[in-house]
């Protein structure tokens, strides 16, 4: 079966980000979404470390280590951009001023619970960063992940077994095989890739699914 690459997933997420949106892209794979934002839309990227209007990576000669993203990689500032302190940055999240955030995940439940900060392994040193603030605060939380672990287990679950980042916060899940809408009524399949039937996808995911009415 054909699965989407990370770049294809990023491009798919980017299609759903509307003109005028204020968006926070989580560290790791979600950062790729920036490369696929439609050029005809004005979309403003926020970085938790105090940047609105974040632009792409600079040329090597223009690297400035006071201008980095949440993943601590050098970025640029677009005309119209702004700097602010951490209190304001997290007020933008917690106060529901950020329209969309895109995060990675270890597990997501059909009701939209998110687990993405800690595997719970006894020897792991936990780190949370801004994940919990984004999960609880952004108006919409999009998650991008492969549907299955490397071991073949579904990461879309009835109930997360990893420690939670936030409860009932994920609205859309973009995977390498399908896009889902999540909520109190469970998981709806918005679209499938690679020519699977709903029954095959349901078997793969291991949770009850239903087709979205318009899909």
């Amino acid at each position: 079966m054909q699965r989407m690459t990370r770049e294809q997933m990023a491009a798919r997420v980017a299609q759903d980000i509307p003109e005028g949106a204020y968006v926070n892209l989580g560290i790791g794979v979600p950062t790729l979404v920036a490369n696929f934002l439609p050029k005809d839309r004005e979309i403003i990227l926020q970085s938790e470390n105090g940047i609105l209007g974040m632009g792409p990576a600079p040329a090597e000669a223009d690297v400035d280590w006071d201008l980095i993203n949440a993943g601590k990689q050098p970025v640029t500032l677009l005309a119209g951009g702004a700097f602010f302190h951490h209190g304001d940055s997290f007020a933008m999240m917690r106060g529901s001023h950020i329209d969309i955030c895109v995060l990675g995940a270890f597990q997501v439940s059909v009701a939209g619970d998110l687990a993405n900060w800690h595997t719970g392994a006894p020897d792991a040193i936990p780190a949370v960063g801004g994940a919990m603030d984004l999960a609880v605060g952004a108006k919409q939380v999009f998650v991008m992940m492969d549907l299955l672990t490397k071991g073949g287990e579904s990461k879309l679950v009835a109930k997360c077994s990893y420690p939670l980042t936030g409860i009932a916060c994920v609205t859309r899940l973009y995977t390498d095989v399908a896009v889902f809408e999540l909520g109190p009524d469970g998981a709806e399949v918005v679209e499938m890739h690679g020519g699977m039937t709903l029954g095959e996808l349901e078997q793969m995911a291991g949770v009850p699914l239903r087709a979205k009415a318009s899909a």
């Binding site: 938790e48 951490h86 209190g87 940055s89 997290f90 999240m93 917690r94 040193i125 936990p126 780190a127 949370v128 960063g129 801004g130 994940a131 919990m132 603030d133 605060g137």
Partner: peptide, 11 residues
């Protein structure tokens, strides 16, 4: 280690 979500650290 006291781990605090970043926004809670700020507020």
């Amino acid at each position: 280690l006291e781990l605090v979500p970043q926004g809670n650290l700020a507020c």
